[in-house]
Design a protein around this nucleic acid. Structure first.
Lengths: 128, 128
DNA sequence: ACAAAAACGATAAGCATTATCAATTTTGAG
DNA sequence: CTCAAAATTGATAATGCTTATCGTTTTTGT
């Protein structure tokens, strides 16, 4: 894998932004300073970063995938009111893989979990 | 909601088949006996059945959604070797919603979880 | 400095799903 | 039973997100 300016921008954008953006959001964000950037390049590089383990892909929250530069295992919560995505500590479901393995007699290599509801901020203001 | 022959076929197909089929699979299955059936009708009716609570949609396992006639809460495990989908009891992650609610101060209305790995059957035979 | 390999931008294609719409089916009141 | 309103259908176009293609540009190592 060679160096690329664009991949640098993208990884930096992810690290600067705590919002778990989509490919499209990163594209729009970077387009300001780099008008020639292509959406395909964003997707391409995000996939490469995921493959090399520098970035995590968040699937199943919405129709679009989101991306996360935080690598330690954790889950996500989508607020249905404001659309913000919050981090959820992995400790909420300890040992799930082992329990499923035991229950099915299978080898469990992966699990995904995501939550949704109304976040604490949105709960305090009646309707948004 | 009016009665419809097609919706009946579809719900029956789901109840007869324990394989958690996709819309496409239901379509192919029913096409034999009902050659005029349209894929759009399958999608339309599955969505209606999900909305009325007679069927559950399984998202996040694969690129296509799967459908399940079992209504009680449970999770799913996808075998990466044979593609089969197994049911996982909900007891593997007790209280997650409450724990997340506590952790974030949010109201949690929904969570999804899915597993993948190699099932017990596939583990016994070297390579498939 | 330069050729091979990698990455780019622009855009077409792919895949799953939803929307559109004229024709058919279902329903319920008369 | 009849008939018009409402719902549903089949066929297909459109959508949304993502990946593939391809000629051009950038990066890399000798």
């Amino acid at each position: 894998m060679n160096y690329s300016k664009q991949r640098d921008f993208i990884l930096n954008a992810l690290r600067m932004n705590p919002i778990h953006p989509t490919a499209e959001e990163i594209y729009t964000l970077l387009k300001k300073d780099h008008p020639k950037l292509s959406l395909a390049t964003v997707y391409r590089n995000l996939n490469q970063l995921v493959q090399t383990g520098l970035v995590r892909k968040i699937t199943g929250l919405e129709s679009s995938d989101h991306f996360d530069h935080q690598l330690h295992p954790h889950y996500h919560f989508l607020c249905q009111s404001c659309g913000k995505i919050y981090d959820v500590p992995e400790t909420v479901a300890p040992d799930v893989d082992r329990l499923v393995a035991k229950s099915l007699g299978a080898t469990v290599t992966r699990h995904d979990m995501s939550f949704s509801g109304v976040c604490s901020v949105c709960q305090k203001r009646p309707h948004v």
